[in-house]
Amino acid sequence: MMDELQVFVEFALRGLLIGALYSLMALGLSLIFGVMRVINVAHGEFLMIGGYVAYFAWAWTQLSPLATLLISVPALFALGVALERFLVERVVGKPELASLMLTFGISITLWNLAHALFSPDPRSVPYLYEPLELLGIYISKASLMIFAASLGLAALLVLFLKGTRWGKAIRAVAQNPEVAQACGIDTRRVRMLAFGLGAGLAGAAGTFVPIQFSLFPGVGHEFILKAFAVVVLGGLGSLGGAFTSGLLLGVVESLITFYANAHVAYLTFYATIVGVLLLRPAGLFGTGLVEED
């Protein structure tokens, strides 16, 4: 009985740790949707590019893989700002199909570009793979580090959104762009900032990919579906919902893998999207960037 309880706790804990990465990615996706009403299909590719930036920063400078966040996040922020300024801004306020098609195009372009530039060879960073023992459960230092860093980044985002002028502006635009504009907020710059931040969060998640998994040009595809499931479950545009749902789906995935199998666990993500949209379209936590106040 004790053994069974320990196994349950172990797998739930593993899921929680990996879930933080899903949360981080979903936060960016949710932020972009909340502010711009754009479903960013290219979010997986942002994660992948962030991974490559971090990987090369580590390979060329021998920086600590964790410190490469200081390069990958600003780099992806800049990429996000540029893409928003020159491409995505044109479809804001247009029917959702326009933004879907555009970000889908960006996704395919980035993916092919990565193929050409980096080759399909998978890469990974050997870092903190040694395990720590906690009450008979072995957890790698890397996953603890990723969990802590993800929580830290999420906390920074909340502080930014709640404690700074620009953060408040983002929330205002998310709540009502017309009123925000009428109050003198430069909504165009807010959208650039939000898209940049979203891309930066994907870049942060991407930084952890070669540490925890394996990095290759198609890796974004593997994560985007999970991120969509997390966002749908949490409620489109809800940051608190995205974060909690990421952790929740991580735990569910891990437990199903143990008690059933990996195939069923993978299906959980599809089933979540379908189930939530059928039963509770607003997600578990409702929509909007502001309701958690």
Binding site: F11, R14, G15, I18, S143, V209, Q212, F213, S214, V219, H221, E222, F223, L225, E253, S254, T257, F258, A262, A265, Y266
Partner: peptide, 8 residues
């Protein structure tokens, strides 16, 4: 599509 083999 599996990227995390830890649970397995």
């Amino acid at each position: 599509a599996v990227t995390d083999w830890t649970p397995l």
